[in-house]
Computed example of a mutant assay.
Amino acid sequence: MIARGGIIGLAGGIILGIFLKGIQALTGLKVYTLLLNVDFIYSKPLPEWVEFGIHLAVAVPIGIGFILIRDWLKFITLLKQSALALLITIPAGFLYFPLSILANKNVPSVYDIRAFGWWAAAHLVFAGVLVWGGWIVRRSASN
Protein backbone atom coordinates (compact mmCIF):
# COMPACT_ATOMS: atom_id res chain seq x y z
CA MET A 1 0.00 0.00 0.00
CA ILE A 2 2.82 2.43 0.80
CA ALA A 3 4.41 1.96 -2.63
CA ARG A 4 1.07 2.43 -4.37
CA GLY A 5 0.35 5.54 -2.33
CA GLY A 6 3.79 6.86 -3.18
CA ILE A 7 3.16 6.32 -6.88
CA ILE A 8 -0.19 8.11 -6.62
CA GLY A 9 1.43 11.04 -4.81
CA LEU A 10 4.25 11.14 -7.37
CA ALA A 11 1.76 11.14 -10.26
CA GLY A 12 -0.31 13.85 -8.60
CA GLY A 13 2.75 15.98 -7.92
CA ILE A 14 3.98 15.66 -11.49
CA ILE A 15 0.57 16.51 -12.94
CA LEU A 16 0.16 19.46 -10.57
CA GLY A 17 3.59 20.75 -11.57
CA ILE A 18 2.93 20.37 -15.30
CA PHE A 19 -0.44 22.08 -14.87
CA LEU A 20 1.06 25.09 -13.09
CA LYS A 21 4.00 25.30 -15.50
CA GLY A 22 1.51 25.41 -18.38
CA ILE A 23 -0.59 28.07 -16.65
CA GLN A 24 2.53 30.16 -16.04
CA ALA A 25 3.53 29.83 -19.71
CA LEU A 26 0.03 30.77 -20.90
CA THR A 27 -0.79 33.58 -18.48
CA GLY A 28 2.54 34.88 -17.20
CA LEU A 29 1.33 34.36 -13.62
CA LYS A 30 4.30 32.93 -11.73
CA VAL A 31 2.38 30.11 -10.08
CA TYR A 32 4.91 27.44 -11.07
CA THR A 33 7.71 29.62 -9.70
CA LEU A 34 5.73 29.86 -6.45
CA LEU A 35 5.25 26.08 -6.34
CA LEU A 36 8.98 25.44 -6.55
CA ASN A 37 10.11 28.38 -4.46
CA VAL A 38 12.25 27.52 -1.45
CA ASP A 39 14.36 30.69 -1.43
CA PHE A 40 13.09 31.65 2.03
CA ILE A 41 14.61 28.41 3.39
CA TYR A 42 17.66 28.04 1.16
CA SER A 43 18.91 31.35 -0.21
CA LYS A 44 21.26 30.03 -2.91
CA PRO A 45 19.68 29.40 -6.31
CA LEU A 46 18.83 25.75 -6.91
CA PRO A 47 18.32 24.04 -10.26
CA GLU A 48 14.69 23.61 -11.27
CA TRP A 49 14.95 19.82 -11.06
CA VAL A 50 16.06 20.04 -7.40
CA GLU A 51 13.20 22.38 -6.54
CA PHE A 52 10.77 20.09 -8.37
CA GLY A 53 12.22 17.14 -6.44
CA ILE A 54 11.47 18.97 -3.18
CA HIS A 55 7.90 19.49 -4.38
CA LEU A 56 7.62 15.76 -5.15
CA ALA A 57 9.10 14.91 -1.75
CA VAL A 58 6.01 16.59 -0.29
CA ALA A 59 3.54 15.07 -2.77
CA VAL A 60 4.65 11.45 -2.24
CA PRO A 61 3.90 11.32 1.51
CA ILE A 62 0.53 12.96 0.85
CA GLY A 63 -0.31 10.13 -1.57
CA ILE A 64 0.85 7.55 0.96
CA GLY A 65 -1.18 9.22 3.70
CA PHE A 66 -4.26 9.28 1.48
CA ILE A 67 -4.10 5.53 0.82
CA LEU A 68 -3.33 4.65 4.45
CA ILE A 69 -6.14 6.81 5.84
CA ARG A 70 -8.57 5.64 3.16
CA ASP A 71 -7.88 2.00 3.98
CA TRP A 72 -7.86 2.56 7.75
CA LEU A 73 -11.26 4.28 7.58
CA LYS A 74 -12.48 1.77 4.97
CA PHE A 75 -13.55 4.51 2.57
CA ILE A 76 -14.80 2.51 -0.37
CA THR A 77 -17.23 4.92 -2.01
CA LEU A 78 -16.05 7.52 -4.47
CA LEU A 79 -17.78 10.23 -2.42
CA LYS A 80 -15.89 9.38 0.77
CA GLN A 81 -12.57 9.10 -1.09
CA SER A 82 -13.21 12.46 -2.75
CA ALA A 83 -14.00 14.08 0.61
CA LEU A 84 -10.81 12.64 2.08
CA ALA A 85 -8.71 13.83 -0.87
CA LEU A 86 -10.15 17.33 -0.52
CA LEU A 87 -9.60 17.32 3.24
CA ILE A 88 -5.95 16.44 2.69
CA THR A 89 -5.42 18.79 -0.27
CA ILE A 90 -7.24 21.98 0.73
CA PRO A 91 -4.67 22.94 3.40
CA ALA A 92 -1.94 22.66 0.74
CA GLY A 93 -3.96 25.03 -1.42
CA PHE A 94 -3.91 27.65 1.30
CA LEU A 95 -0.10 27.47 1.45
CA TYR A 96 -0.36 29.97 -1.42
CA PHE A 97 -0.58 32.80 1.11
CA PRO A 98 2.44 32.13 3.36
CA LEU A 99 4.52 31.05 0.35
CA SER A 100 3.69 34.31 -1.43
CA ILE A 101 4.51 36.37 1.64
CA LEU A 102 7.81 34.58 2.41
CA ALA A 103 9.12 34.44 -1.17
CA ASN A 104 12.13 36.46 -2.19
CA LYS A 105 11.57 35.64 -5.86
CA ASN A 106 9.07 37.40 -8.07
CA VAL A 107 5.88 35.43 -7.35
CA PRO A 108 2.19 36.38 -7.38
CA SER A 109 0.92 38.69 -4.66
CA VAL A 110 -1.31 37.32 -1.92
CA TYR A 111 -3.97 39.62 -3.41
CA ASP A 112 -3.76 38.16 -6.93
CA ILE A 113 -7.11 36.40 -7.20
CA ARG A 114 -6.38 34.94 -10.66
CA ALA A 115 -3.12 33.40 -9.49
CA PHE A 116 -4.78 31.99 -6.39
CA GLY A 117 -7.60 30.61 -8.55
CA TRP A 118 -5.14 28.75 -10.77
CA TRP A 119 -3.21 27.58 -7.70
CA ALA A 120 -6.44 26.26 -6.15
CA ALA A 121 -7.46 24.61 -9.43
CA ALA A 122 -4.10 22.83 -9.62
CA HIS A 123 -4.53 21.50 -6.12
CA LEU A 124 -8.03 20.29 -6.97
CA VAL A 125 -6.46 18.44 -9.90
CA PHE A 126 -4.02 16.90 -7.41
CA ALA A 127 -6.96 15.78 -5.25
CA GLY A 128 -8.58 14.30 -8.35
CA VAL A 129 -5.42 12.33 -9.11
CA LEU A 130 -5.46 10.96 -5.55
CA VAL A 131 -9.04 9.76 -5.97
CA TRP A 132 -8.49 8.39 -9.47
CA GLY A 133 -5.27 6.65 -8.43
CA GLY A 134 -6.90 5.31 -5.30
CA TRP A 135 -9.76 3.92 -7.36
CA ILE A 136 -7.33 2.18 -9.71
CA VAL A 137 -5.38 0.76 -6.76
CA ARG A 138 -8.56 -0.54 -5.14
CA ARG A 139 -9.79 -2.12 -8.41
CA SER A 140 -6.43 -3.75 -9.14
CA ALA A 141 -6.21 -5.09 -5.58
CA SER A 142 -9.65 -6.67 -5.87
CA ASN A 143 -8.83 -8.46 -9.16
Rank of each mutant, 00 (worst) to 15 (best):
I2H: 00
R4E: 07
G5R: 07
I7W: 07
L10Y: 08
G12N: 13
G13D: 03
G13N: 01
I14V: 15
L16Y: 09
G17Q: 04
G17C: 08
F19E: 00
T27R: 11
T27F: 06
G28C: 05
L29R: 13
L29H: 08
K30E: 12
K30M: 05
K30Q: 14
Y32W: 11
T33Q: 09
L34T: 07
L35W: 10
L36Q: 08
V38Y: 10
D39M: 08
I41P: 00
I41G: 03
I41S: 10
S43E: 15
K44H: 12
P47M: 07
P47W: 07
W49K: 12
F52E: 05
F52A: 13
G53V: 10
I54T: 09
I54N: 03
H55N: 05
L56N: 03
A57L: 13
V58T: 12
A59H: 02
I62T: 11
I62F: 13
G63Q: 05
G63N: 10
I67V: 15
D71I: 02
L73T: 11
L73S: 10
K74S: 13
I76C: 06
I76R: 15
I76V: 15
T77F: 11
L78Y: 14
L79V: 12
K80A: 15
Q81E: 10
S82H: 00
A83F: 13
A83T: 11
L84K: 08
L84V: 04
A85I: 00
A85K: 02
T89W: 09
T89Y: 04
T89L: 04
I90E: 12
P91M: 09
G93Y: 07
L95G: 12
Y96K: 01
P98K: 08
L99M: 13
L99V: 02
L99G: 04
S100M: 03
I101Q: 04
I101R: 12
I101Y: 13
L102C: 06
L102K: 12
A103V: 06
A103H: 07
N106A: 14
V107E: 02
V110E: 10
Y111K: 12
Y111N: 15
Y111D: 09
Y111I: 00
I113A: 13
R114G: 02
F116W: 13
A120R: 05
A120G: 11
A122Q: 04
F126L: 03
F126S: 03
L130P: 04
V131S: 03
G133S: 02
G134I: 04
G134E: 06
G134H: 04
V137S: 15
V137Y: 15
R139Y: 08
A141H: 08
